[in-house]
Simulated assay, not measured.
Amino acid sequence: MNAGRVDVHHHAILPAIAQLMREHGATFTLPWSLPQTWQVLADNRIDVALVSNPIPAGLFDSVEVAARFNRAANEAVAELVAAHPGRFGLLAALPMPYVDAALDEVAYAFDTLRADGVVLIAHAGDSYLGAPIYDPLLAELNRRRAVVLVHPMTLPGGPVDGVPPVLADFLLDTTRAAISLIWTGALDRYPDISFVLAHGGGFLPYAASRVAALGEAFYDVPAAQVRSALGRFHYDLALTAPSGLPSLLAAVGPDRILYGTDWSAAPEPVVAAGGRAIDRQLAALDPAARAAIERDNALRLFPRLRLTR
């Protein structure tokens, strides 16, 4: 494999998925085309993109509909991966919060579609990922030593006037999911899951000192446990540089950081600007650290990618 980047936070709303969304009442779909995606990959020196399409739990009114939608969406992405081996991977979506259906989709995604991992939304309803309802799902993902991208949605209760969810709520949603995994002990019970927190971990790296100090003072969660947990997550850089990367490097160091773009949720100029900011900030690191962030950390998480280039 050459020195190109591995993008671990990449969306592809294929035509079949866009049609599914329209059929289920989605008010919009992300603009996407394969030719434009090839251009984004080339312009940003990306060799491989792990495609994840997190699906809002509130889009469906029954477990059967949720299961069919997630299955069809995953199969559409698997077709893209099969058509372009070595350029794309699949992080399969699961029908949250329906744990039995999610377990069925885990088996199908890994055993039939050969998924590289899964994407989990940070919460469904009022239940974040550390909630007991998700223990059977996390146990199975732990058994499979799965990579799990934790992706945010609008907060429980919905948006408030004057605060666009993508500017604040999404970051807090990821932060809440991470704290839930720490506070409930799920991170310790399922040590073989590799959790990747989207968008640099939300607010977590910036607030790490506060979480550690007040967790111990108010909730009897040892500060050392919080600090250890911070170093067990992985963090993607989608929409994080330049402002968030210094906090992330201070909190965890380069061995836990992964390159990501958020294409096609983020428009092409935003992806390009983020890539330039990452280049400027990584220039201060040694070559091994830069290579780790841009590709080597991802190749350790997704060893299949080494074999398909």
Rank of each mutant, 00 (worst) to 15 (best):
residue 88 F to T: 06
residue 35 P to V: 08
residue 100 D to E: 15
residue 24 H to A: 00
residue 19 Q to W: 02
residue 67 A to S: 09
residue 41 L to I: 06
residue 34 L to I: 10
residue 40 V to W: 02
residue 72 A to C: 13
residue 22 R to M: 04
residue 99 V to Q: 07
residue 83 A to I: 00
residue 70 N to G: 04
residue 81 V to F: 00
residue 59 L to D: 03
residue 19 Q to L: 09
residue 64 E to V: 07
residue 80 L to T: 03
residue 79 E to C: 05
residue 62 S to V: 07
residue 53 N to H: 13
residue 22 R to Y: 01
residue 69 F to R: 03
residue 50 L to D: 06
residue 33 S to T: 12
residue 29 T to S: 11
residue 56 P to W: 06
residue 109 A to S: 15
residue 62 S to T: 10
residue 97 P to H: 04
residue 95 P to S: 03
residue 95 P to H: 04
residue 58 G to T: 05
residue 64 E to R: 11
residue 38 W to K: 09
residue 95 P to M: 01
residue 38 W to N: 07
residue 58 G to L: 11
residue 61 D to H: 14
residue 96 M to D: 00
residue 54 P to I: 01
residue 94 L to K: 01
residue 85 P to R: 12
residue 56 P to E: 10
residue 78 A to N: 07
residue 89 G to M: 15
residue 58 G to N: 09
residue 98 Y to F: 14
residue 72 A to N: 10
residue 31 P to C: 02
residue 89 G to A: 14
residue 28 F to V: 13
residue 90 L to C: 01
residue 88 F to W: 08
residue 46 I to D: 03
residue 28 F to R: 13
residue 90 L to G: 01
residue 106 V to A: 08
residue 75 E to S: 12
residue 69 F to H: 10
residue 83 A to Q: 05
residue 85 P to G: 12
residue 25 G to A: 09
residue 39 Q to L: 08
residue 24 H to V: 00
residue 26 A to T: 04
residue 69 F to N: 04
